[in-house]
């Protein structure tokens, strides 16, 4: 099990409301003629922490990229925060400003300082006054423990610091849902922990999170539900304890034995 996670959250302290945050029903997606997502049904309630695992090419990244419409789905419905994702660009922008996303390769804006990276969207999308946006940004930079880097450019930071800035940048929009697309896959082992710690803190505060990751330690410590995908389908979903100790599907067992076996 990964040593990067040293603490786990107490499920009894966490509240998951009945309110639905994301509703995906009978969703299908093709890349050309390749059927990449097949008949996905997924309901996420507010306050849930979901980890999506699976072999590469199983469609897990594509699934969360559909949730903020970085990818378009061709059949079925996706409703985020009560707004259905259609080709209506206004709805898409609205959903995107309510859903934060953290990428594998950080995707910070290299021509802007850390602070400008964090204030850009609040100022231009939310129309927050600059001063207020900067104050909020400093708050979140403190939360991810790098306020002293505010004046630097992303190219001057380490990978772990960049990813924490990326998390702060998303949080500055005060999103209701956070999506993480393999946030630690491009990081050195020494830096994975600092990013996971930030994410655990976020989970403790009750953020609705969907996280695609290979960090099974994180899944056990944080998730209330683990989803296993293969060949574009949801093969198994369960609470972390049963998922890791008592998986039902043969495919899941094989996957777990491969990633936990060594």
């Amino acid at each position: 099990m990964s040593e990067a996670v040293t603490r786990r959250i107490d499920p009894s302290q966490m509240t998951i409301s009945d309110e639905v945050a994301i509703e995906v029903s009978s969703m299908n997606k093709w890349f050309g003629s390749f059927h990449v997502l097949r008949d996905i049904d997924l309901t996420v309630h507010r306050g849930e922490r979901i980890v999506i695992a699976g072999p590469s090419g199983s469609g897990k990244s594509t699934l969360i990229r559909c949730i903020n419409r970085l990818e378009e789905h061709q059949a079925g419905r996706i409703v985020v925060d009560g707004i259905e994702l259609t080709s209506d660009i206004k709805n898409i922008d609205k959903v995107r400003s309510e859903v934060g996303m953290v990428f594998q390769h950080f995707n910070l804006f290299p021509h802007l300082t850390v602070l400008e990276n964090c204030t850009l969207a609040p100022i231009w999308v939310r129309k927050t006054p600059r001063r207020q946006a900067e104050a909020t940004a400093m708050e979140y930079l403190e939360k991810v423990k790098i306020p002293e880097q505010a004046g630097k450019y992303p190219g001057q930071l380490s990978g772990g610091q960049q990813q924490r800035v990326a998390i702060a940048r998303s949080l500055c929009m005060q999103p209701k849902i956070m999506l993480f697309d393999e946030p630690t896959s491009a990081l050195d082992p020494e830096m994975i922990k600092e990013v996971l710690d930030t994410m655990i803190e976020l989970a403790e505060e009750g953020m609705t999170m969907i996280c695609v990751t290979h960090e099974m330690g994180f899944a056990q410590a944080v998730a209330n539900r683990v989803i296993f995908m293969d060949q574009g389908q949801i093969v198994e979903q369960n609470n972390p304890h049963d998922f890791f100790h008592n998986p039902r599907s043969e495919r899941t067992k094989l996957f777990l034995s491969q990633i936990l076996g060594h």
């Binding site: 970085l70 922008d93 400003s97 934060g100 995707n107 804006f109 850009l120 231009w124 998303s170």
Partner: peptide
């Protein structure tokens, strides 16, 4: 990724082009 990051923050086409 630069386009995707701009999109995911809710910037519309012209703002993304102009600022990012």
């Amino acid at each position: 990724g630069q386009y995707e990051a701009a999109d995911s923050l809710g910037l519309d086409y012209w703002k993304a082009q102009r600022l990012i």
